[in-house]
Nucleic acid binder design. Structure first.
Lengths: 217, 217, 217, 217
DNA sequence: CATGAATGAGATTTCATTCAT
DNA sequence: AATGAATGAAATCTCATTCAT
């Protein structure tokens, strides 16, 4: 599943140069956007000459694909680490959300880079989301079989949960600094656990929405 | 630089020309994407000379902003029409989802246009989502006060619900033709209503995920 | 000697509009330079519509010519007023210098407008300077005949004196605010009167350069 | 915006190309004027592709500045050569005038280039004149201390002398072919030496203005 | 491997001028 | 007389890509 056409560099020096370019591209694509980022921006950021780019990549698009695929892989690894060993599905959801927000906070450009790919290489863009959705749906299906999770189409459920995470990350990690992420996390998990319908007998004015118990940043 | 340098046209003829440009831009941006669409593409589509563009807009970006704002206004109007007169909050959610999917299906290209704006005029992009989130959160808060909706931070709830809709629209309206939207709608509403936790006593292998009762396309 | 081709407007309203355009052009040409000033800049400054320009002038160049000719005429009139009735040639020089500096201070854009014409209509540019030089040279020749002025080619003398005035105006009226113009005037007149050779017997360190007796700005 | 965005070329080939562009610009700016000269004119004259221009200069303005600065440096060098070794101040003035006229005659078009800079980069324009005025004034001050020159503010004197040269150059080198430059030179030097006041006892009709003894072209 | 000069197609943008009203 | 919409030629500037070293 190698989606670009240039072979891996033969020498260790080449490996390093290539890596520098990928990292530079992540920063530059995130900052300026794909179209506005020039190859020259990237090579300057990487500290190599312009022509060096074409030693490693056939064109700008290939580099974006590599960056997006790489970001996806890293995020998947981080999520796997966060939920490793847990069996309670709602625990898993909570820790998955938390890990995603943390990753987003550390890589604030992630969204922009991934989203750019929609207009450059749609296959890459879809692959990104599918690479999360597929195992997610499988895990949800397993949890349904074990009776932990309501019987809904697992793929629909997976995309719905990803949508929640994505939008809350955008709104509260990327845009907002005003709000305690722990409260957002609690609210999201509560929604996911119980749905938005008020608990039975809840017609009378209840207490104010639960505020976060400070747990983590 | 000057955000108000092009005044509204003084004559009816000017109004018409301007409108032609906006409509042409919707088509061209949707078809080619913002960056790949040239001013010349737009003026050709509109049937006017290249220079005419600059009579009405300072640059391509200004036109994108106008298109995105207009699109948001139309979608908001459609949503308002869809839920008009309904009082049951979960009915409102269902009809809102349905209307959103229908709108998306009719303007599949414009989904892309909105997303492109993130890299062109981020304020416009955020404004787009906020213009939905703000009234959404207010409506949810009202439904909480009337005891229909669980007490969660209304804005968080609004963004979570928008995330669900957005991702399901992307996955099943834009990408997938394979699946019956009614089933997706049902699953989403069920999730929203009850959450994902299995109903009490649901340990035994239940029936397969519910398939949609055919209602709408 | 009408150097442009459009006839005078027939109505009083037309006269006024035309005059507004000339005045606007003076300001705009001075501020932005001829090439960077657009017809639209001028008509906006004048408060008329774009098309109105072509009612009165065949093109931008004709307007510059009119502005330059007009400025020359006004300056000549002012100089004539300043020296009227004086017979002592050095008095005349002093008052001429003074009037020029005063005019320049009031019309700081004069230089820029006149100088622009060199690249637009060289005939106009030369005419500007010749219209000063010719009577100047005649007056100097007369003063030579009456024994007031050293016998040098009067035209050379005229251009030399104009050069002095022009450069001192540029340096001290346009660029510099640090210096008292009266001192500059005194120094210029002293140079013109006696030349720069030190007075006989002036080998020893003389007094510091004469400072201006405050007379006028 | 970035005034240093184009670094010096790294290779000898680059140096040569850059130099070719500067020389082409001198020719083209002189021939057509700054505004009427297009980048394409310059690159064609230099025999390189259009895009090559932007490898070495951020815009046309930067090239003009380079041309003007270079021109000033060359003229200063020529003046320095012309007066080297002379101690008599009036000899220095005469030789300076002569060198200036000769330079102007050889680079008649570049006179225009310098003047254009006023409307493109005023700092450059002022720098041009100041770079002559400052050492000129210092030299005059020294000559005053040694008793050769009348005590007048040296900077005023410098600008006055530059004005004389400039206007005589314009009138007799650029415009006029009718007159022998040696006569102009003589008259200028005589004015500078003695001033315009008639010598004592000069009331009677003297001889006609001295005609040039043929010395130089 | 690495370099950076060179290219030229293509995009944006400006604006003098025309013209129907 | 006055208007302002419309034009399209021409200019500037960008940049992915090639290539000789």
């Amino acid at each position: 599943m190698n989606h670009n056409s240039t072979p891996r560099p033969a020498t260790a020096r080449g490996q390093r140069t290539r890596q520098r370019l990928v990292e530079a591209a992540e920063a530059v694509f995130g900052r300026k956007g794909f179209e506005r980022a020039s190859i020259s921006d990237i090579t300057q950021q990487a500290g190599v000459a312009l022509g060096t780019f074409y030693v490693y990549f056939p064109d700008k698009q290939a580099l974006l694909v590599e960056v997006v695929d790489g970001l996806g892989a890293r995020l998947r690894a981080e999520l796997a680490r966060a939920i490793a060993g847990r069996t309670d599905r709602l625990e898993v959801e909570r820790e998955g959300f938390r890990a995603f927000f943390a990753f987003t906070a550390r890589h604030r450009l992630l969204y922009r880079v991934v989203r750019q790919s929609e207009f450059v290489d749609e296959a890459c863009f879809r692959r990104y989301y599918r690479s999360f959705a597929a195992p997610y749906a499988r895990a949800l299906a397993a949890a349904q079989r074990s009776g932990q999770v309501r019987r809904l189409d697992p793929e629909v459920l997976a995309y719905a949960l990803m949508g929640i995470t994505d939008f809350l990350g955008m709104r509260y990690v990327l845009w907002g600094r005003k709000r305690d992420m722990a409260a957002v996390l609690d609210a999201a998990v509560e929604l996911v656990r119980h749905g938005m319908a008020a608990p039975a007998g809840g017609g009378r004015p209840g207490p104010a929405p639960r505020r976060a118990r400070r747990r983590t940043a």
